[in-house]
Amino acid sequence: MQGSLSKDAIIVIIVTAILIWIMPFIISTYTLTVLIIYGMLGLSLGLIWGFGGILCFGQAAFFGLGAYTYAIAAINFGESTIPMVLAVLVPAVFAALLGAMMFYGRLTDVYLGVITLVVTLILFKFINSTAGPQYVIGNARLGGFNGIPGFQTLNIPGRPDDYIWGDSYFYVCAILLAVVFFLVSALLRSSFGRIAVGIRENETRMSLMGYDVRARKTVLFAAGAAIAGLAGALFANWGEIVTPSLFSLGQSAEIIIWCIVGGLGTRLGPIIGAAGLAYLKFLLGQQMLIDNTLITGLILVLFVLFLPKGIVPAISNMWKVSFGRRQLGRIHQQRRIRHRGRANG
């Protein structure tokens, strides 16, 4: 990664400020809020998949867990500050346990995907079957298929009657996304982040260099889940209801699609992919001619076939080719390497 962290911070602040100012003129803040939340969810998978190489099929599980934790806690506490914290912590702890089980068992790629998928299904089936009155946590009934409506939404910390909603909720979400984005950047710049990328590239080599690959993967997995949990809590506040469909495989699928379309291994890609595709879905939802799912599927297939790296890397490549410094031709490069080798040897 180029540049320094402080430069990152300045860019994030400037871009966020401009976007917060301009975007509401184009799209209503109500829609924008959910696009931001999806962006954050995309970023959570982008972090662990794009930079840690952990393909998680169950990111929706953490998203849903965050949302449910918030809803249940909000009903029990009657205010929103502690529930927000819990909604980040509970998925993180859950992911740490799950991750420890998987990574210390040295499960990789396909098996990892299947286990995360299965765990999501278990949660989905379980929550779906909790319609009866015996499924109660504190004062909150889990409500099965109908979900949990009517919980306390976000309020100013310490003042349970001052709700944050409408435009101000949009600003809260936007700023939170910027903060999360900045934290992710900081994490990736730290030695932890660089080692995580090293693990993605070559796990054996990193473990031979003395790094505890299992522990690092577990921590990264938990960090991704924490972001997803935060997104879930924000989503619960936005929708004012949580339902089991948050855990569904379709939701997990969408998150993966966002990352692929936006571009893996970039921080911005998943956010752009998420917001862009969610907005596209919103626009498509307004027409009845062609089924929505069909188009989503088509987009995914076309991207895998023709643009497997995603939008952001493709654009930045194009930028480099058109405006950046030309790279040397292949023959020149080889010659230069050979010279360097001679000089060193």
């Binding site: 396909v110 699609i257 799912t293 599927g297 297939v301 895998v304």
Partner: peptide, 26 residues
């Protein structure tokens, strides 16, 4: 086009699955 690319086949077939669901719905 995707033999041997494990993750890509997975994503492409996921897209196909959504595509077929949409088609069947229509």
């Amino acid at each position: 086009h995707l033999y041997g690319r494990l993750v890509d086949t997975m994503l492409a077939t996921w897209g196909l699955s959504l595509f077929f669901i949409g088609l069947a719905t229509m």
